[in-house]
């Protein structure tokens, strides 16, 4: 009891500063009465008195609260002042909640003993139930008529929502990791693979130069060797032998020796390939030359190595 007694003063203190503002808004003096009652409530310490007097007030208050609780905004717009008042009173009630709740049951117990008040209570309970049904219906229709947001997850309960979200996130992660793995694999497969630039850069130019040098050196070497070799048959040729068969080793020499244009053309015709395929094959004096060529070649073949060796050494 000591706790209950000790509690009220702060409630009253809290209500007191709140009241002056609201009093101005409220034309009726009911608030005053309220405050007065509160003071009265606060003032007497006798338990019995306290029980009886507040009980009626609290019943009213509870009724109001119940009405307020069960009602929806639309229906009870009829009398806003009491509601407001109640709201104000509610403040006080909320502030002194412990007090009220403790005292309410006791008051109801007393009310149950007294017939009038119990009847009132029953009435309130019935209406409350009806109103609750209505409220539930209203609430339900409201929910059903509510437009759903464009949530990809759809209308689902929050727990489920969380679950689905987690699942989706997991899936995405998995997908991502799979994609990454594939990417990694591709990178691993392509490692070292470089797509060349479209233009030839300096390094490539340098390399081409080096390679060209190599080719030029080889070709020069070859031409040096082969022309030197070719000079030998020219000596035999000077002795009066002609050659028609184009021998690669002799061509360099020919190039040097061929001064007349006609000869040059003759060489052109020889060039294509195998002798029997040529137009001039087996024509005229070339038949004879054929033998001689061979002889000259044989001679050359025997001579050349020696000559070359002599040249080299």
């Amino acid at each position: 009891m000591a706790a209950t007694v000790a509690a009220p003063p702060p409630a009253a203190m809290a209500a007191a500063p709140g009241n002056p503002h609201k009093r101005k808004k409220q034309p009726k003096g009911k608030g005053r009465g309220n405050t007065g009652k509160n003071k009265k409530l606060k003032g007497p310490d006798d338990a019995v008195r306290r029980r009886r007097k507040p009980s009626s007030k609290f019943i009213k208050l509870l009724e109001k609260r119940a009405r307020d609780y069960n009602s929806d905004d639309d229906e009870e717009v009829d009398h806003p002042p009491p509601r407001r008042q109640h709201a104000e009173g509610g403040d006080a009630a909320v502030d002194g909640d412990d007090n009220d709740d403790q005292e309410a049951p006791s008051s109801e117990e007393e009310a149950s003993s007294s017939g009038d008040e119990s009847g009132e209570e029953e009435k309130a309970a019935v209406t409350r139930f009806e109103q609750g049904c209505r409220a539930f219906r209203v609430a339900f229709t409201k929910i059903m008529s509510k437009k759903l947001p464009d949530d990809p997850l759809g209308p689902i309960l929050s727990a489920h929502k969380k679950l689905v979200a987690a699942k989706l996130a997991e899936e995405a992660d998995e997908h991502k990791s799979k994609g990454e793995a594939r990417k990694e694999k591709r990178i691993a497969a392509e490692k070292g693979h470089v797509i060349p630039e479209n233009h030839i850069n300096n390094k490539e130019k340098m390399l081409i130069k080096v390679a060209t040098q190599g080719v030029v050196r080889l070709f020069n070497e070859v031409s040096k060797r082969q022309t030197r070799k070719g000079l030998n048959p020219s000596r035999t040729k000077a002795l009066g032998r002609e050659k028609t068969l184009s021998v690669p080793s002799n061509q360099g020499q020919k190039g040097q020796a061929s001064s007349s244009f006609s000869k040059h053309i003759g060489k052109d015709e020889d060039e294509p390939g195998w002798a029997p395929l040529r137009d001039t094959y087996m024509l005229g004096s070339k038949l004879k030359d054929w033998d001689k060529v061979q002889d000259s070649d044989v001679a050359k073949q025997t001579e050349v190595p020696l000559d070359n060796f002599s040249d080299d050494e």
Partner: peptide
Amino acid sequence: AACVSLASDIDKLNRASRKSAVRL
């Protein structure tokens, strides 16, 4: 530097008598 005198004819254009440029 890329010019060579060929020892033998290679094709119709690159004959032994002429100088040829090496292109890589």
